[in-house]
Structure formats: C-alpha cells, structure tokens
Design a binder for these strands. Structure first.
Lengths: 335, 335
DNA sequence: CTTTGTCATAAAAACGTTTTACGAAAAAGG
DNA sequence: CCTTTTTCGTAAAACGTTTTTATGACAAAG
C-alpha cells in the first residue's frame, strides 16, 4: 500500500526529485555529501524504484524474456539456470515462457514479452519459421537464438554442433567393430534431431559403411523416457536387435535402457547404448549412460551475456554466432 | 523502433484515446460498431499495449514472481511448469528467480519483484525466516507460499503433508518385517527434511519399534545424486548395511541406488530402497525406484490459481491453506 | 572588481496509458 | 411532445520516473 516515491525521498533529503534520480542512475554526477544524504533517505524510507515508471520514461525495461521448448527437460533447465544467473548478476529480471513445442504458445509468449517491453529475448525456436522474431527486432527488441545457429549475420546465436555430436556418438559405437545401429530420435523436423542423424551418417560413411544398410531410424513423436521405452519394446518385438543404439537425447536413452534391461537384454553386453545431452541422471542410472555432453549451463550464460551486451552497448556490439563443440562421455553402457 | 501508441490507433479509428483504452479493458462499455472499428485499427497498425505505461497508471502489473530453491530439481521444475501454465492462461507473465537456497539471493529476487511491481509472489522459502515476505505484503504484493504451510491464517499456502509422506515411506519399508532403517537426508534445518523424519519416527513407533535404535540418520549438506552416492559409500565403508534405506528425495535415492549396485549390493534383495518426490527418472532407472509421489504440477497450478484469485478478487477472496496428501508408489526397489 | 567558466542542483516537460467527470445524443416514460 | 434516464464518447488529469534545459553559486581568469 504505502508506496514511497522519489518525491518523498527528495523532500526528506532536502533535494529535488531530479537529484534523487541522478543518485540512482548516475551517482558520479552528484556531490558526495548530497549523495550520501539521499542514500540514507532512501534507506530510511524503504524506497524501491518503480520499474514501470522508470521504463516508461527511459524507454526500456530491465527484463529479458526466455522462451524454451520444454522446461521439464533438464537440458533446458540447465540453460535456464545459466540465464537466470547472468541476468540476476546484471540486475535484469527473467520472464519465463514455456512453448511446449507449440507454435501458438510460442507466439503468445512473444506477445507477452512485447507487452512487457522486455529489453531482449532469448529463444529456442520450436520450429524453423522465425518470422515472429523479425517482428520483435522491428520493435527494437534484441533477439538471441539459443541452441539454434542463426542463418544470417545480423543476430546473435549460441549453439552446439549437432552434426559433430552425432558423428562422435556413432564413431564411438563403431570403435568396437562393424555394427548395425539404431538411431532413436524425436521428430526429424526438429533441427537437432536431423543434424544428429546427418552426423551419424557421416560417421558410418567415414568407416566405409553404407548408412542405408547399417543404420535404422526409429522416429518417435515425443522425446521423453516413455517414448524411449516404447522404442525398446518395438525393437524387441521385431526380434532383431541392433548391435548398438544411439538415442537423440538422454531421456529417451534412459527409457531405452530400462526397456532393454527389463527384457533381459544386457547393456552393454548385447546392445551398446549411447544418449545425448549428458544430463545429471545419465551418470546416476544403474548402468551409467555414455552420452554426448553439451555445455548447457554455459550456453545459457553466454547467450545472456551476448544479449545484454547488445542491449547495453548497441553501438560497439558485434553480432556473434557462437558454436560450441560437444564432448564424448564414455560410461558403462558402451564399455 | 516504431512503437505505435494508443493515440495513433485512436486517430486512425476516429475516436479518442480513452475509447481505445475502453475497448482494451472494458469492451462491453463501447458500442459494437466503434469497437470493431478500433479493433481493426489495432490489427492494422500492429499495436501492442505498453505494459509499463499501463501498470504505472493502473497501479498494478500483470506479472507474478516465482522464487524457487533449485530450478535444477525436477520437483521445482514441475511446479514451475504448473505455474507458467496457469499464469499464461490468465494473461500473466512469470518472472523467475532461483534462490539456490541462498537467503541473500532470495532477498535480491524479492527486491527485483518489488521493483517490477509484480502483482503477487509465489515462493518456496529457503528457510524459516519469513520477514521479507511481510514487507512485500505491506507493499500490497500478495504472497502465496509454495510447498510450505502458512503459519498464520492471513495468507494462502499450498503444501504436501511431509509427516504423512515420511510415515508412509517407513511404514511401507516395515511391511517386510522389522528392519533397521537408514534415513538419508539433506539439512534437517530444511522443513521438508525434518518433517519427513518426524513421519518416519511415527511409523516406527506405531510398529512398536524404538526410533532411536531402529533408525539411523545420515545428514548430507546437499540433496543431489552425488550426495546420495556418498552416503552409500559411507554405509558400505562402515560395513553394517541397514535392511532398508529411505532417502529424502529421489535425486539422493538414485545416487544411493547406484552406489549400492556398484558395490555389489542387491536392491531390493539385500537392501530395500525408497525415495521421495517420484520424479520422472525414478521410474526410468534400471531398478525402478519406489517413491512418495507429490502432486507437483498441481501444486504449482493451485498456488497460482489462489494467487490470481487474490489479485483479481481482493474482496471476495478467502485465504486458504491447502494441504495435499502424498501417495505411495511401489516399484521394484522395495519388492 | 568584473568576466568567464564550471558544476551541482532545480524546474518542468515528457513517456503511454487509465480513469474521472462531464456532455451529447438516444431511448424510455408520461 | 416534453421530461427523465440511459448509453456512449470525449477531454483532461493523473501515475512515478527520467531527461533536458535553465539557474544560481562559486572559483578562476583577466
């Protein structure tokens, strides 16, 4: 109720409102004695700056929007944690939006962000169509793509090379000798899934094998543990187990692991298994899971650094498309 | 850049700015013909309401703050997903803060919320000291406690009965006959951990056993898979394995499971194991984990419903302290 | 002792909405 | 046909900041 304004602070400190604003925003512009007088007044009155008034007048807020595909996936959770860290350090608030892979929901999120006049948006697009983002940029809202390389040089992006990751995974599976491999994936319309497949095929080709023959694709609609287990049941029902399985993410790999073990298939004895993302639970499962590690937390941090740099230094800012390299983590499931 | 204001919409529709505002906020107050004229003008110009200006004048924003203890824990992730769903449905934006169990960080979050003049705050307090929340309420910001029962009747809260949950877990472990049980927990200063211990002791007492003798407490500083595995190593090093282990959350239980299996201890053969939270990964692990399920998603949804009801109907709103009951989920690890 | 320049502060005008008080026109009532 | 009520719109005043321009004091320069 009792909202104390800059005016009351000014009155108590015996200065004008403008001076209080200067203390808040350009402390160096005001004499040390007045400054400390104002500061104690602020403390005594428990004044908190009114963000809306501030951003209305200043023309920009101290918030960023974060739109992710699935907040339930540890991958995105780690990214979000990194984003929150940096934003918080630099005095920005994070507005969270969960698109659930739904284009409509994603657009609703962007509308909310626009209404809040966020300073910038961090987004993992749910699909290949980025028109909505162009509109944001027209409105002066900066955009950084997360886990999605920018096609054009006029914007920042952070991503991890999924082709390389897919290649690493399959090359590792082939180390044990020629093998028939199943690639269990989410929708191939999802860029990450498609890129990992390309990498897998490259690795097979490099080993002198024909992908069409040595690689079986199993495309599921969801990318969670349940769908991984369903894929396992399908493989078992068909009766011809592959020598190795590469899952497009760890959630699916964990489901696959469970399905295989339940059916009495030994991992890695009968089937070698590798996942993707290296989520915490990958190492905690009973047969610890080999995986492709992505620098998730760092992804979030760097994306936010880029975004806030763009916001705070619009002139000197140079757009960057950062690509990280994934890392192979070998554990029991492929030993 | 091109920020179109309500004025330009008004000009194009041939009405006054006030009328546009009415179309936006009280559509029933304006004649159908003018309304549609205004609406097409809005569409044609791509007008988006300026949230800051709106909340400055109206005195309240359409945002809520969410402060959680660990966004990396699937428990909180599920809660957050529920919160985001409801908020989004009702046109509110969610500002996310991660306290990491750090009191200072939590206060910084609350300050940010206050600056943004959020309509309300959803918070899982990181400790027993709730003074910071009192200040918020003085400022007219509604507060709903999440996973923490309110002590006083003047505010809303949603929680799950942790005493009952702890009791359920241990009673279930005792079904197989008298057993020596280890309770592997996070800091007992955390209410949830302490309550689950109380429940555990009650269950033992009800079975006619002396808790001091039949229950060993192992208190770890963190509540993740790593600390669970450390606890397992400690138990094994000491050489006297309990008959059953109750872990204060599933992350610790998964670590415990891994530690035990690696040492050749059979689960549930040698040691029966139960966790808490029933996170997705509990059922996906190779020896699927018995657990105490909490309605996490629902917790988030109900909390947000209560908060927004309090915001939108301050007069008719009746404070509620909702307590859910947990549910025992039996899987392989205790069969 | 004047003039010039510097600097801290004051005063006032924005920012884009919502809201209040009020008028005009239309509908209802006699 | 004249009142009374109702409906629909307008104009203008907020909301709490930031920012620009103006002002006055005081020091340095002449």
């Amino acid at each position: 109720m009792s909202s104390v304004s800059i005016k009351e602070v000014a009155a108590r400190a015996g200065v004008s409102p403008g001076t209080v604003s200067n203390v808040l925003n350009r402390p160096e512009k005001v004499a040390a004695s007045t400054r400390s007088r104002v500061e104690t007044a602020i403390r005594e009155l428990g004044f908190v700056r009114h963000g809306s008034a501030s951003s209305l007048r200043a023309g920009h807020s101290r918030t960023v929007g974060l739109s992710v595909i699935d907040i339930g996936n540890p991958f995105f959770t780690d990214v979000a944690a990194g984003v929150e860290e940096v934003a918080s350090e630099r005095g920005y608030a994070v507005i969270l939006g969960n698109s659930s892979g739904d284009r409509l929901k994603e657009e609703r999120n962007l509308l909310v962000f626009a209404e809040q006049r966020v300073r910038g948006v961090l987004i993992t697009p749910s699909g290949p169509d980025l028109t909505g983002l162009g509109q944001l940029k027209q409105r002066g809202i900066n955009v950084v793509l997360v886990d999605h390389p920018a096609e054009r040089a006029d914007q920042c992006s952070v991503a991890v090379n999924d082709v390389v990751g897919g290649s690493m995974a399959v090359a590792h599976l082939l180390e044990a000798g020629p093998a028939r491999i199943a690639y269990v994936t989410g929708p191939l319309a999802v860029r990450q899934c498609a890129d990992r497949l390309i990498g897998a095929e490259q690795a097979l080709a490099a080993a002198g094998r024909d992908p069409a023959e040595a690689l079986e694709e199993i495309e599921m609609s969801a990318m969670n543990a349940r769908s991984g287990q369903q894929a396992a049941e399908k493989l078992i029902a068909e009766g011809r187990l592959p020598d190795a399985v590469f899952c497009a993410n760890d959630l699916m790999a964990l489901g696959m692991l469970r399905g295989l073990l339940q059916a009495g298939v030994r991992v890695p004895g009968d089937v070698r298994l590798i996942g993707y993302d290296d989520i915490d639970f990958a190492s905690a499962s009973a047969v610890s899971l080999s995986s492709i590690r992505q620098p998730t937390h760092r992804l979030g941090r760097v994306a936010t650094d880029l975004l806030l740099d763009e916001c705070d230094n619009p002139d000197s800012h140079a757009h960057q498309q950062v690509t990280f390299q994934p890392e192979l983590i070998v554990r029991e499931s492929t030993r």
